[in-house]
Simulated scan of single mutants.
Amino acid sequence: MIVRILIAVFASLVAGLSYFTGLARMMTGILLGFGALCSLLIGVLFFLPADDKRLLLPVYDKVPAWPYFLIAAVLVGMMLVLFMTKAGPAEEEKVSALHFKYFLGGIGGYLASMFLSSIYWFPSDALRRSTDEAFLTMEVLFGTCLFLAGITVSCALLYRASKGSSESHPDLMRRFVLGTFTVFHLDKMPLLVAYLLIYSPETKVTFPYIAAIALASYIPVGIFLLKTTRDCRVTE
């Protein structure tokens, strides 16, 4: 467990420092590639026959795999845009307290989306015993849509916060926002939620078909990373 924690801390520091030091294009490409790879692997799991006896990542329910492949394709498309196209000059704004308010609002909204939605994802034992599966499914679907909407709005606020700059440091807020975002692994929340919806041993309720909606929140996250990186003056 300690080794895993150290690896996670090291990975977050490397990602954050990459943005803080100006390696935005490289780091964004890695994060988009990671999301595409995870989406592809989950799609492959559901493309194969369902097998709950499998030792590694068993599949308890057969669901369509194409949504996961589609998400992977969209993220790969973002990578192509990142490395094969050039962005025009970004709109500059003098950094002010308003940009930090946008930043705090984006981070707060991001975390609130996660924790508020978890109320619907993990029903209590009493609720599971007193309601049918259809009602639980609707609750989980509502929580997932709430999560997706919250992530989208939060990413928009964070992008707005990244526009703050100064004459001596034109990428001041861009580096700060991207670095902080990745240091705390906020970019990986969509994958975490999708995993919990597919494998939730604590609740013994799985929703693999709704997990694709949760994983789709990688798209607004990817758009935020892509647009902010393309706005950077120095990306290598």
Rank of each mutant, 00 (worst) to 15 (best):
L57A: 10
V14G: 00
E139C: 12
F46C: 08
R4G: 15
L186A: 03
M189E: 03
L6D: 05
F69Y: 13
R128G: 03
E236R: 13
T228L: 00
F47N: 10
L157M: 13
E133P: 07
R25M: 10
G77L: 01
M27A: 11
R233K: 12
I213G: 08
Y120P: 07
P201Y: 00
L192A: 13
L41E: 11
C38I: 13
I210A: 05
V140G: 11
P64T: 06
A11D: 05
F83T: 08
R233P: 01
G164D: 04
T229W: 00
A156V: 12
M114K: 11
G88D: 06
F10M: 12
K227L: 10
M189Y: 03
G150T: 05
A24H: 06
G33R: 04
Y199D: 05
A161G: 10
L157E: 04
T206M: 12
K188M: 12
T21H: 15
Y159F: 10
P58T: 00
L17V: 10
A161K: 04
F135S: 11
V221E: 06
S124D: 09
I151V: 11
L32R: 05
I30S: 08
L172W: 02
F184T: 15
S113H: 00
I198E: 06
P49Y: 11
S18V: 04
Y19L: 10
A15P: 06
A97L: 13
V63T: 09
L48V: 06
R175V: 02
Y199H: 15
F69I: 03
F147G: 07
S166R: 10
L116W: 00
H185R: 05
M84E: 13
M79E: 15
S130Y: 02
P67N: 01
T228H: 02
R25D: 08
A24W: 04
L98S: 14
E167C: 02
G108N: 03
K204D: 15
S168V: 08
F176M: 09
S200P: 13
A149Q: 00
S113I: 02
I42E: 06
D52A: 14
V59N: 02
T228I: 01
F224M: 14
K53Y: 12
L186E: 03
A149M: 04
R128D: 01
S39Q: 08
F176K: 05
T235I: 07
W66K: 07
F10P: 00
F20K: 09
G105Y: 07
T21R: 14
V193S: 05
S168R: 12
S154D: 03
T229K: 01
S12I: 05
T180P: 10
L127N: 08
V193W: 05
F142L: 11
F115S: 10
L148C: 09
L141G: 11
W121K: 07
F10L: 14
P58E: 00
E92L: 12
F100P: 13
T235L: 09
L23S: 14
V3Y: 14
A90V: 02
H99D: 05
T228A: 04
L111R: 07
Y19A: 04
T203L: 02
H185C: 10
T229Q: 01
A15D: 07
G77A: 03
A126F: 10
L215V: 05
L226S: 03
L157I: 07
T228N: 05
V3D: 15
L31A: 13
L178Y: 01
